[in-house]
Simulated assay, not measured.
Amino acid sequence: MLLNVSERGPEHPTPAGALPVVLLHGLFGRARNLGFVQRRLAATRRTLAMDLRNHGSSPHGPMNYPAMAQDVLDTMLHNTACPAIVLGHSMGGKTAMMLALSQPTAVRALIVVDIAPAQGGFDRLDLPDNLDSLAFPPHLDLHGTNDLLRPYIANDAVRQLMAQNIRQGDNPGWAIGLKDILAAMPDLMSWPQLPPGLHYDGPTLFIRGEDSAYISPANYPVMKALFPNHRLESISGAGHWVHADAPRRFTELVEDFLAHIP
């Protein structure tokens, strides 16, 4: 499956050897969620922010991490962006890890944002099971979208996250493959069983929000086993949406990591 791509790059040709950077958003997000870091990196590198399947403007279909990693690889090859440095947040981080483990020659270096290669993640969204059968009025604007979702989603941040996935104006409705996403939630919450000894030797940076529980000391052994050449950085005052809570510090860590990739 070829994914929708938002590409940005420098005004002048990139230096020889400056590999492209692929950016992968989290659950119920889209490519533009990583816009701040993409704009910063695009000053010196080619960047490709992708809508993962069932998200943004990408096609819909059944989803799991091997399939999503294959989508990313197919899209990288289609856009002549292979190998690349791959950065993924949350669900995008699990997709990036799966890509690096299954296709290591396609991933020169890996950045994983606030997610571990383990069971867990997304447990605070608290979405009702019948959200995909939501009844939409004939016309909807942003204010009306929030009013429509409020009885179903009490958390303001989660409601805003979901509101970006509703098509507004005349004939409103879900713009994402919500049925496929909800059906895949057990797979998205988990982590696939991998062959013994499988690991990725490339440079790897894990970035966690200090106020987030998605990466914990219990995850350190599997992180070490799967990604032996990794380091972990924490950002104080940041939660799960690290890049939104502390964009400048987050981008500093990413740029410093990229500067040291041989």
Rank of each mutant, 00 (worst) to 15 (best):
S234Y: 08
Y65G: 06
L253H: 10
T204A: 03
V86A: 04
R39N: 14
D256W: 03
M223W: 09
L142G: 02
I235R: 09
A246L: 09
F227N: 10
R30H: 05
R248W: 08
L52Y: 08
R248A: 13
I176C: 10
H78V: 07
L142R: 12
H12C: 02
P151D: 10
G17W: 02
E255Q: 14
L27Q: 02
P186S: 01
A135H: 13
K179C: 05
N171L: 00
L23M: 12
S236V: 07
A246H: 12
L205S: 04
G169A: 00
A49I: 04
D256P: 00
A18Q: 14
G237A: 09
P195D: 14
I235F: 12
R40S: 15
F257M: 12
D123T: 15
G121V: 13
S133T: 15
A109R: 04
I207Q: 07
M98H: 11
A163W: 09
D211M: 11
F227G: 03
H55R: 09
A175T: 00
P20W: 05
I111M: 13
A16Y: 01
Y220D: 13
A18W: 08
T204D: 08
V21E: 11
L73V: 01
D147L: 14
G121L: 09
L194N: 07
V72M: 11
L125A: 04
R108G: 00
A31K: 02
F206W: 10
M76I: 08
M185Q: 12
D180S: 12
A183L: 12
R231Q: 15
M223S: 02
P83S: 05
D71S: 06
A246G: 03
Q103H: 15
P228I: 09
A96P: 03
W174G: 11
R167I: 08
V5R: 07
G120S: 08
T44E: 15
V86P: 01
P262A: 11
H55Y: 07
A157N: 12
L99D: 14
N4Y: 02
M63E: 01
P15L: 12
F136K: 11
T80E: 15
P62Y: 03
G209D: 02
D51K: 00
I111T: 08
G9H: 09
P66S: 11
P83H: 03
N219Q: 11
T14I: 15
M189E: 15
L161V: 03
L73I: 02
L52G: 14
D51L: 01
E233Y: 05
P172T: 01
H89K: 03
D245F: 02
P137A: 06
R8V: 03
D129Y: 05
T75H: 00
F136A: 13
I215A: 02
A16L: 10
F122R: 11
S57E: 04
G93Y: 00
L77R: 14
H199C: 13
I166A: 04
A118S: 15
F257K: 06
G92N: 10
L73H: 07
A116C: 01
N4R: 06
K94N: 07
N4F: 04
V222T: 15
N33A: 04
L140V: 07
P138A: 07
P247Y: 03
M162F: 08
L27G: 05
